[in-house]
Simulated assay, not measured.
Amino acid sequence: MRTTGDRIRQAVSFEVIGLLISVPLAAFAFGYSLEKTGVLGLIGATLATVWNYIFNLGFDHALKRFTGSTRKSIKLRVLHAFSFELGLLMAFLPIIAWWMEIELLEALLVDVSFAVFYLVYAFVFTWCYDTIFPDTDAAPPSGQ
Rank of each mutant, 00 (worst) to 15 (best):
V39F: 11
G41N: 08
G41L: 07
I43W: 01
G44M: 00
T46G: 15
L47P: 00
A48N: 13
T49L: 11
V50W: 05
W51R: 09
W51G: 04
I54H: 04
L57K: 13
L57W: 14
L57M: 12
F59K: 10
D60S: 07
D60Q: 12
D60C: 01
H61Q: 14
A62T: 10
A62H: 11
A62R: 14
K64V: 10
R65N: 10
F66T: 15
F66I: 14
T67M: 02
T67L: 01
G68T: 06
T70I: 11
T70K: 02
K72F: 00
K75L: 10
R77W: 02
V78H: 03
L79N: 05
L79T: 14
H80D: 15
H80S: 02
H80R: 12
F82G: 08
F82Y: 11
F84V: 01
F84H: 05
E85C: 05
E85R: 03
E85T: 07
G87N: 03
L89T: 12
A91V: 13
A91H: 00
A91Q: 06
A91Y: 01
F92Y: 12
L93Q: 05
L93H: 07
L93Y: 04
P94L: 05
I95D: 02
I95C: 04
I96T: 14
A97G: 05
W98T: 15
W98I: 15
W99Q: 10
W99F: 09
M100P: 03
M100S: 07
M100E: 08
M100W: 02
M100Q: 14
I102D: 05
E103L: 07
L104M: 12
L104D: 05
L105N: 11
E106D: 12
E106M: 10
A107D: 08
A107L: 05
L109P: 00
V110Q: 06
V110F: 08
S113H: 07
F114C: 06
V116C: 09
V116T: 15
F117T: 08
Y118L: 09
V120F: 07
Y121N: 06
Y121A: 09
A122S: 15
F123V: 03
F123K: 10
F123Y: 15
F125R: 12
T126Y: 01
W127K: 13
C128N: 10
C128H: 11
C128M: 13
Y129W: 13
Y129C: 05
D130H: 10
T131E: 05
I132C: 00
P134I: 09
D135R: 01
D135S: 07
D135T: 08
D135K: 04
T136V: 11
D137N: 11
A139I: 12
P140I: 11
P140N: 05
P140Y: 06
P141V: 12
